[in-house]
Amino acid sequence: MIPAVNSLKEIEVTEQPSLCHHMIRETCNVVGECDGLEAVKQAIYNILNTERYRYIIFSWNYGVELQDLIGKPMDYVMVEVERRITEALTQDDRIDSVDNFEFEVHRKTLIAKFTAHTKYGNAKIEKEVDV
């Protein structure tokens, strides 16, 4: 006979801070810590500058696939960049959505400007993609 145990306790989920080392991109220095929107902006920068599936240290859900777009027609690239950036960034549970994409074409470079809506506020982001 197996005893009937009904002692499931309520599980309380508490959100951990998103503290990370603060990276100053212009000088390539790491100084102090950042949290909130600034930490999410840094995570976005890291995701968009990590080629997906290339590095075994990262999960296959981390990063964005942009290398295979080189040499493709610009109309196709614009649609794919929007889709791939949105997919890559919404893997982070702090990012709710990505929209307001605008594109600028400069020879063999596509500049994508968009808004990332996070739980800490909105962030205007710009990503340069070689095509």
Score class of each variant (00 low, 15 high):
residue 15 E to G: 14
residue 16 Q to T: 15
residue 16 Q to G: 12
residue 16 Q to D: 12
residue 17 P to Q: 13
residue 17 P to M: 13
residue 19 L to V: 13
residue 19 L to P: 00
residue 20 C to A: 13
residue 20 C to D: 11
residue 21 H to S: 10
residue 21 H to N: 11
residue 22 H to Q: 12
residue 23 M to L: 14
residue 24 I to P: 00
residue 24 I to E: 11
residue 27 T to P: 06
residue 27 T to N: 05
residue 27 T to W: 06
residue 28 C to W: 03
residue 31 V to Q: 05
residue 31 V to W: 03
residue 32 G to Q: 00
residue 33 E to P: 00
residue 34 C to D: 01
residue 35 D to I: 02
residue 36 G to Q: 00
residue 38 E to I: 03
residue 38 E to C: 00
residue 39 A to W: 01
residue 39 A to P: 00
residue 39 A to K: 03
residue 41 K to S: 09
residue 41 K to N: 14
residue 42 Q to A: 03
residue 43 A to S: 11
residue 46 N to Q: 08
residue 46 N to F: 10
residue 46 N to W: 07
residue 47 I to V: 12
residue 47 I to P: 03
residue 48 L to E: 05
residue 48 L to K: 01
residue 48 L to V: 02
residue 49 N to L: 04
residue 49 N to H: 03
residue 49 N to C: 01
residue 49 N to W: 01
residue 50 T to V: 04
residue 51 E to S: 02
residue 51 E to Y: 02
residue 54 R to G: 04
residue 54 R to I: 13
residue 55 Y to E: 13
residue 55 Y to V: 09
residue 55 Y to K: 09
residue 55 Y to C: 11
residue 56 I to P: 09
residue 57 I to P: 05
residue 57 I to Q: 08
residue 57 I to L: 11
residue 58 F to T: 09
residue 58 F to Q: 07
residue 59 S to C: 05
residue 60 W to Q: 14
residue 60 W to N: 15
residue 60 W to E: 14
residue 60 W to D: 14
residue 60 W to V: 13
residue 61 N to R: 08
residue 62 Y to K: 06
residue 62 Y to H: 06
residue 63 G to Y: 05
residue 64 V to H: 07
residue 67 Q to M: 15
residue 69 L to H: 05
residue 69 L to I: 08
residue 70 I to V: 15
residue 71 G to W: 06
residue 73 P to S: 02
residue 74 M to N: 09
residue 74 M to K: 11
residue 74 M to P: 01
residue 76 Y to A: 09
residue 76 Y to E: 10
residue 77 V to L: 07
residue 77 V to H: 04
residue 77 V to W: 06
residue 78 M to I: 10
residue 79 V to D: 13
residue 79 V to G: 10
residue 80 E to W: 07
residue 82 E to C: 10
residue 84 R to L: 15
residue 84 R to F: 14
residue 84 R to E: 15
